[in-house]
């Protein structure tokens, strides 16, 4: 087996993306894992229940019913009351940084980190904090000002091999928030499924994020190709012809079904994220409203 170098990873946060992230956070989009989650959150907001935790400045788009009018009367500025809600206080962003995430052009890990930046940024802006878990690194960030720190930490991520089960156990031991955003390629459903069940047993709510690549749908160009697994660096020389490509596409569909099936069994949502091909298309991508709600 000839030793190979892992693919290099470009800068995940170019200026265009940072501009786009600022726009996202400025528009104060709310993060929602799904329709049911939106409804539950709205119900909790209307109930005005919970322990008073503090104020924050009003931004456009906030629910008017949450404005602390007493504070407005005293100060003349509008503030939003922050109630102590355990399940909305913070969220966990769990990024799979295994070498298999380096596949694709650009690599799947780039998209995963950008997605983590968006999710984490939204959590920092709207919630109390975010617990970032990348590989073996566990970091708790809080407040709007931690967005830059979040981006810095995500940009420093390098591929590392760690079993997801070990990472999740570490999260549970650390008492992570109940809401978990798991960004991964879920290439091996057999190892993903017990992790989901473990999280389910610990009353965690998981949203799976799967950045998709063109290679997840079809085979690469025809010809004699050396196929390399970044996890194990195993190499397989394959003659890709039409028949082989069709068989591989069929296997990919089977994999997709397995991925969907294990999340369904765990009653967790799985979001497949299509990646933009160029940075300037990011805004269009966001406008498509794939999973964000106003």
């Amino acid at each position: 087996m000839k030793a190979r170098m892992l693919p290099t990873m470009p800068d995940p946060f170019p200026p265009a993306f940072r501009t786009m992230l600022d726009a996202i956070l400025r528009f104060q989009h709310r993060i929602a894992g799904g329709q049911s989650e939106v409804l539950r959150a709205r119900h909790r907001a209307l109930s005005q229940s919970g322990t008073f935790a503090g104020h924050r400045s009003y931004v456009r788009g906030d629910d008017l019913r949450r404005i602390d009018w007493n504070a407005y009367a005293r100060t003349g500025s509008m503030f939003i009351k922050l109630l102590e809600e355990d399940d909305r206080r913070a969220t966990t962003v769990f990024v799979d940084a295994s070498p298999s995430m380096l596949c694709g052009n650009p690599p799947r890990l780039v998209t995963a980190l950008r997605l983590a930046a968006i999710l984490g940024g939204l959590a920092l802006v709207h919630l109390d904090g975010v617990q970032l878990r990348v590989g073996a690194v566990d970091q708790l960030l809080q407040g709007r000002g931690a967005v830059a720190d979040l981006l810095q930490r995500l940009a420093a991520v390098r591929p590392s091999v760690m079993e997801p089960m070990d990472s999740v156990r570490a999260l549970l031991r650390a008492g992570s928030p109940r809401k978990v955003h798991w960004i991964s390629d879920f290439a091996t459903p057999a190892t993903t499924e017990p992790v989901l069940h473990l999280l389910r047993r610990h009353s965690r709510h998981v949203t799976g994020w799967l950045p998709t690549l063109p290679d997840d749908q079809t085979a690469p160009a025809l010809g004699f190709t050396s196929v390399v697994d970044p996890e194990t660096l195993l190499e397989r020389r394959i003659v890709i012809n039409a028949q082989m490509a069709a068989a591989f596409a069929a296997e990919l569909k089977v994999l997709q079904r397995q991925q969907t099936q294990i999340f369904s069994f765990a009653r967790f949502p799985l979001q497949r994220v299509s990646l933009p091909t160029a940075e300037f298309e990011v805004s269009d991508w966001l406008e498509a409203g794939w999973s964000f709600r106003r």
Partner: peptide, 9 residues
């Protein structure tokens, strides 16, 4: 003729 990194070995 080409090297293809894949997570779907």
């Amino acid at each position: 003729r080409q090297v293809h990194w894949t997570a779907h070995l």
